[in-house]
């Protein structure tokens, strides 16, 4: 009925989106998700200082409860090294150095996995349990959920690297039409150039990962050093 849109217009012929749009979405989403993550862990920060100041029944931090500083430092260091490698990887990709991006990205992934392993080692060797006072509660809650975020975020990095490896050596149009939708007649459902999303994806990831490593450093200072 109007000049803006008609039901009779075939869906397949409407104009394509500008290719940079999805990259912009990813970057904005990374910033927003970082702020959400910050507020999520803010609750544990609040809990730490609240319970510490209240010190109910004198059970905030019994003398027997000692966090293993060495392991905690190694975990935080692994996350920071991983973040640095990812930032380097993203800058390599911006410079067109695909092998450099993949190598540094894999390094980032490896250090992230190392942090997970070290966290599990810490829990299995630690000398106290979650029932041992307010500090122990915050310690296990905070580190446990940090680990959950760590695993999920590394999944994101893995998808970027997997796409990059799959299309290594192939051109921008390396995938068959309709490959994503599974239907060669529905090519409009596919993201036109999956490889074009790796760059913005890596930038977005590098930003988020750096913020997340910052939260990791804050966690280390508060739980192990204060």
């Amino acid at each position: 009925m109007t000049e803006l849109a008609q039901h009779s217009t075939p869906y397949s012929v409407v104009e394509a989106e500008p290719p940079e749009l999805m990259g912009r979405n990813l970057r904005v989403a990374a910033h927003l998700w970082a702020s959400s993550t910050g507020f999520f862990f803010f609750a544990f920060l609040f809990a730490y200082f609240y319970l510490r100041s209240v010190n109910s029944q004198g059970k905030w931090h019994p003398h027997a409860v000692k966090a293993p500083v060495t392991l905690g430092t190694l975990i935080a260091a692994s996350v920071v090294v991983s973040a640095v490698l990812v930032v380097v990887a993203a800058s390599r990709l911006r410079g067109g150095d695909q092998p450099g991006w993949r190598l540094a990205g894999l390094g980032g992934l490896a250090f992230g996995v190392l942090a997970i392993v070290l966290q599990v080692v810490e829990w299995s060797t630690i000398g106290f349990g979650p029932t041992d006072g307010g500090y122990a509660s915050v310690f296990f809650g905070w580190t446990g959920l940090y680990l959950v975020f760590l695993v999920c975020t590394l999944y994101w990095l893995e998808t970027l690297l997997a796409t990059s490896f799959r299309y290594a050596g192939r051109g921008a149009s390396g995938h068959a039409p309709g490959e994503a939708s599974g239907d060669s007649h529905r090519t409009g459902d596919d993201i036109a150039e999956p490889i074009s999303l790796i760059g913005p994806g890596a930038d977005a990831f590098a930003f988020y990962w750096a913020v997340f490593a910052g939260i990791g450093v804050a966690t280390w200072i508060i739980l192990y050093l204060l």
Binding site: Y155, E158, T159, L161, A162, T163, S164, F165, R166, Y167, H175, E179, A180, S181, D189, D190, I191, P194, L197
Partner: peptide
């Protein structure tokens, strides 16, 4: 995505 396959929109 885990397998690096192209994504549908």
């Amino acid at each position: 995505r885990l397998l690096g396959k192209p994504a549908s929109l």
